[in-house]
């Protein structure tokens, strides 16, 4: 699996929205700020939804597409609590 040793990997390939985001949210629930999680997903809605979820929750996410038709999302958790939800922020 991708990522440095010990990084949790959530394999949500084959599932459709909103399941990838739900699995990701479960995986990060008990992790401290700064921790990294990797998500594998092949649902096209996840392209929008994982970054949108990360923005709503104050996490950082980077994604890169794999040749095999899925996408790897690397999420670095932000501080707990408040995250900006203002629709006007860009």
């Amino acid at each position: 699996m991708r990522g440095p040793a010990g990084v949790p990997v959530v394999d949500a390939r084959g599932t459709r929205c909103p399941v990838p985001v739900i699995r990701l949210a479960r995986a990060v629930r008990d992790l401290p700020p700064g921790a990294t999680v990797v998500l594998l997903a092949d649902d096209v809605a996840a392209w929008s939804d994982v970054p949108a979820w990360a923005r709503m929750k104050g996490h950082a996410v980077s994604l890169h597409e794999e040749d095999e038709g899925w996408t790897v999302y690397e999420v670095v958790l932000g501080p707990r609590g408040a995250a900006p939800q203002d629709a006007r922020s860009t």
């Binding site: 929008s48 949108a52 979820w53």
Partner: peptide, 9 residues
């Protein structure tokens, strides 16, 4: 929704 970068689900 996708172009706006907001949650689509």
């Amino acid at each position: 929704l996708a172009a706006m970068g907001v949650l689509t689900h």
